[in-house]
Design a protein around this nucleic acid. Structure first.
Length: 485
RNA sequence: GGCGGCAUAGCCAAGUGGUAAGGCAGCGGUCUGCAAAACCGCCAUUCUCCGGUUCAAAUCCGGAUGCCGCCUCCA
């Protein structure tokens, strides 16, 4: 497959360092608050990448870390009257709840920074020995960026450019503004660990070097994260790792684009973020996941509530068709009949195109287009009575469901049975809009009676009343059914 | 100020040289007591604008305009 490598600013053919094995590391969350849609996107995108690589037959060793020591966690702890550890634990659990709702798989390894202090101290020793680091008078240790040739290659900038923008905080004692902290000496009241240089805590970038080396080995295949991590986090991580291990750190750097609100980046500092939990209060997690995959992973994605409502309709359409196929397949007897050659050809073409889209830098937006192609094909065939009742039709319907399942396994979608998903959505909507389904059922029965008496005026009146509450009644051969419009 | 990205129909969106996927909304038809859903058909001679390269450009090059990102914690 082709994957865009930030390091070379181009799509490249993916070739695993060891045949059949992909080692992949993605920067996880700093556990100090509930996750927002930006976190959702990043996690869903890399979840799809892992699933797709496995689908291609690779064994994937996937590591996603938790940053559980950091200024923001310490501040939050003070606010909430908890210890830093308790804060981290709380938001890590919240993260799992969100990811489960989004059908994001657990990583194979989910290491936490505070479990790897010793590993980081070992690294710092190496830097000091090799003169890549220096200890300042107040006990902090910094990495000497200028000593690292090629610094800036990942984020595409040179040292002189960076220098003009860099600055030194008043309490820092850096040789150079670009240098970054490997170790911060403890301040009163802060969590700290013993080290040969006194009590303190590790700098931001060091954990990823320590943990990726420990669990994957260097070099490894794919390093992922949000676009904003490219600089300085990944640039520093790369410099640091290559300084310690004296070889290339990562083969493919992959970064996802931002989620935006009103054309602006969704971020903590702009406090324009919408949390995953906010969304889940009104929408099924699969709708959010679907929405996140409707745009290519590297492009900015604009979040609006309307976009989510559209995603709900689109996903419903797919599940409607799935439900229809499942229902037809419950038939017991099947007649003989001709093969549906043209439909089969169209089916195979969709399968190929989907594959090509995913091969091309994980183009889920295009791939979803082919899912609708399958939906249209299935709906069209379902109009045909012979198709619905004959053996060749049965086989093609099974193929269609299998293909939807295969695609769904990679995209992390469509895994519910059609009818149960639709029922589930309805229940959620009822709760959201505070509607009692019983009342609706009663009204529909009343209307049905009126219809049987050919009292269409009354029947239509009842239907209009329901329509005013946003409810649509559909008369089918199996009797009336209703749903939200 | 430095570096980078994006601009496709009413809205969302795919498409990096060969004549504009898909979704939502809308319009006509089939079905229906009437509807809804579904199906069939329609819905961008055109891809922000101006130049250029080419037999051929939404796609490549130059310029303009607009929006956004990174350079500081951030997925």
């Amino acid at each position: 497959m082709l994957i865009y490598n930030t390091l070379h600013r181009q799509k490249e053919e993916f070739v695993a360092l060891q045949p059949g094995l992909v080692r992949m590391y993605v920067c996880g969350i700093t556990a100090y608050d509930y996750c927002h849609i930006g976190h959702a996107r990043s996690n869903v995108v890399f979840d799809v990448l892992v699933r797709y690589l496995r689908y291609l037959g690779y064994k994937v060793e996937f590591v996603r870390n938790f940053t559980d020591v950091d200024d923001k966690i310490i501040n939050r702890a003070a606010q909430e009257g908890l210890s830093a550890m308790e804060v981290a634990e709380k938001y890590i659990q919240a993260f799992y709840e969100d990811m489960d709702a989004l059908n994001v798989l657990r990583a194979d390894n989910e290491p936490r920074a505070t479990d790897h202090i010793e590993d980081m101290i070992k690294l710092i020793r190496i830097y000091l020995d090799k003169d890549y680091a220096y200890l300042t008078s107040n006990g902090d240790i910094y990495f000497r960026v200028r000593k690292m040739a090629g610094y800036g290659s990942l984020s595409g900038r040179n040292i002189e450019e960076l220098k003009s923008g860099a600055r030194i905080a008043p309490d820092e004692d850096k040789e150079d503004p670009l240098d970054f902290a490997l170790w911060k000496s403890a301040k009163p009241g802060e969590p700290s660990w013993d080290s040969p240089w006194g009590p303190g805590r590790p700098g931001w970038h060091l954990e990823c070097t320590a943990m990726s080396e420990k669990y994957l080995g260097i070099p490894f295949d794919i390093h992922g994260g949000g676009q904003d991590l490219t600089f300085p986090h990944h640039e520093n991580e790369k410099a640091q790792s290559e300084a310690a291990f004296e070889r290339e750190f990562v083969k493919y750097w992959v970064h996802n684009g931002f989620v935006r609100v009103n054309s602006e980046k969704m971020s903590k500092s702009l406090s324009n973020f919408v949390t995953i939990k906010d969304i889940l209060a009104s929408f099924h997690g699969e709708i959010l996941r679907f929405f996140l995959l409707t745009k290519h992973y590297r492009s900015p994605l604009d979040y609006t509530e309307n976009a989510l409502a559209e995603a709900e309709k689109a996903l419903k359409r797919i599940y409607w068709t799935k439900a229809a196929l499942e229902k037809e397949l419950s038939r017991q007897k099947w007649s003989k009949g001709q093969d549906f050659v043209e439909a089969k050809e169209e089916f195979d073409a969709l399968s190929d195109k989907w594959e090509q889209a995913m091969q091309d830098d994980l183009n889920t937006a295009e791939a979803l287009g082919y899912v609708f192609g399958l939906v249209r094909l299935a709906n069209r065939m379902l109009e045909n009575k012979t198709f619905r009742k004959s053996e060749p039709g049965r086989l093609l319907m099974l193929d269609m469901l299998d293909l939807l399942k295969k695609w769904g396994l990679v995209l992390g979608l469509f895994h519910h049975s059609g009818q149960s998903f639709l029922d589930n959505l309805k229940i959620m909507r009822c709760r959201r809009e505070k509607i009692d389904p019983k009342t609706i059922d009663e009204m529909i029965q009343k209307r049905q009676k009126a219809r049987q008496n050919k009292d269409f005026a009354l029947a239509d009146q009842i239907r209009n009343e329901l329509a005013d509450s946003g409810i649509e009644v559909m008369d089918t051969p199996e009797g009336p059914r209703w749903d939200f419009a």
